[in-house]
Design a protein around this nucleic acid. Structure first.
Lengths: 253, 253
DNA sequence: GCAAAAGTGTTCCACCTACACCCATGT
DNA sequence: ACATGGGTGTAGGTGGAACACTTTTGC
């Protein structure tokens, strides 16, 4: 059950916030939306955007509201926003007990820099795997949240059609493939990728006459739209995360 | 960021709770641990076990504590406990604002009935897919939480070694297969299942001399222990969830 | 012509599927 | 004997990995 006899003011109150890991692809690299903290603790450090739940607001609504505020995007309604998990360790905010519901969001591209609503500064910074990189350690436990979010996104690409959420309304298969390559940090065979995507009904649908040049050179590529499908059967697995040195039975490879 | 200028008593306080969907296998059926509510709202109805976060306790700790209280099990430390997601819709508890972190837990078997800590009554009831079943609609939004938990468990069986968490320390491959069959509601080929499991290094390891009779009849089966591996590569996919009638694209819209 | 990217074809192999078949045990 | 479940063997199909090859553009 959730609540029985309970004096709602008996305990030190919990603050409930949302934290957002917002990813985008920019010039062939994965970027993450960060804000610079204006005051203590962690003043001057980068942090994930986020904020408090309003009294009559679900976490998903708060997350989407924050997403709109921090990115400056108008059409936030259609963006992919996914609950990641909740972080509730007692010491994660030195001031008080803060329980934070973390979300992962995907944005096609963010040409506009975003005005920091209440933050000192906000920026898209290139994502670095090792939690270090161009922005240093993040405030609070946000390095961990960010790593969890990246892992989740990478995993979801395998068995969902999520990759189109990184793309503009019209995109080429090369651009779609680049989403996988950048998020996974691997290279994929263009031919096999193409077949795999086209073999999945509802993943993408071709725009009849359209075509576009991609990198300046090369044959113009056909344009596609996102299809209606959500899941990928069979999945598109990323190449072995662990090499697996040996095993009790190793047929040939 | 998480907190800026903020009067911690300015808002109506949030209560933070954990709710647990605890599954087990009993006599060949999937069971779920439920408690009967003693007071309003939803007095007399069944609900998921759960409770409040203590002031210095992470959600995971609270969940494990509740798990121990409600199941009566002593060795709760080794059980599989996994954060599902957080439910925060404003109206989900009529009395006050309750944000609930839901967990899914797997128990090998529960021979002992559990003493209800603070609940009127607690019981293992056979899980029903359609949220109805032997226990009727659950209190609050627990039907939804339970459905989400079942879906999560079913999905995780595909690509993790989680199934051993349902089994006692020593088990036969037939028992392990039954886990999949019961959770998925399908039948699996014993021969292929066997090969698949044994081909995955670290999924199970055989106990050299041991064997046991299973259903009274039949050849005694070899006994296995859970191995150290966590993930399943390649995954063990359940038979097609959607038949997908026809058409190369545009299934829904 | 050359480089680069799109797009097509083809081969090999891992793995999944399905069944057939033997083994050990209780009734 | 026979039913039942454990365990082994094997043939066929699907799909992914790897790679050769053609096409269309810019330089």
């Amino acid at each position: 059950m959730s609540v029985q006899g309970y004096d709602k003011y008996a305990y030190e109150p919990f603050a409930v916030t949302v934290d957002l890991a917002v990813f985008t692809l920019r010039s062939g690299r994965l970027h993450i939306l960060l804000v610079e903290r204006g005051q203590e603790p962690y003043a001057g450090q980068w942090a994930l955007p986020g904020g408090f739940l309003e009294p009559d607001e679900a976490a998903e609504e708060a997350a989407r509201r924050e997403l709109a505020e921090e990115t400056g995007l108008a059409d936030v309604a259609g963006l992919h926003l996914e609950q990641l998990r909740t972080y509730s360790e007692p010491g994660r905010d030195p001031r008080m007990r803060v329980v934070s519901v973390a979300f992962a969001a995907l944005v096609p591209d963010a040409p506009q820099a975003q005005g920091g609503g209440d933050a000192a500064r906000a920026a898209w910074l290139p994502y670095e795997e090792g939690a270090g990189g161009a922005y240093g350690p993040l405030a609070f436990d946000h390095d961990r949240i960010l790593a969890d979010a990246h892992e989740r996104i990478g995993g979801k690409l395998e068995y969902t059609c999520l990759a189109t959420a990184f793309c503009p309304p019209e995109f080429t298969l090369g651009e779609l493939r680049q989403v996988y390559e950048v998020v996974w940090g691997t290279e994929l065979d263009p031919a096999n990728f193409r077949r795999k995507v086209l073999a999945t009904p509802g993943f993408v649908e071709q725009i009849p006459g359209a075509s576009r040049l991609t990198g300046g050179r090369g044959k113009p590529a056909a344009l596609y739209r996102a299809g209606g499908a959500g899941s990928l059967h069979p999945p598109l697995l990323r190449p072995a995360p662990e090499p697996v040195p040996d095993a009790k039975k190793g047929p040939s490879s």
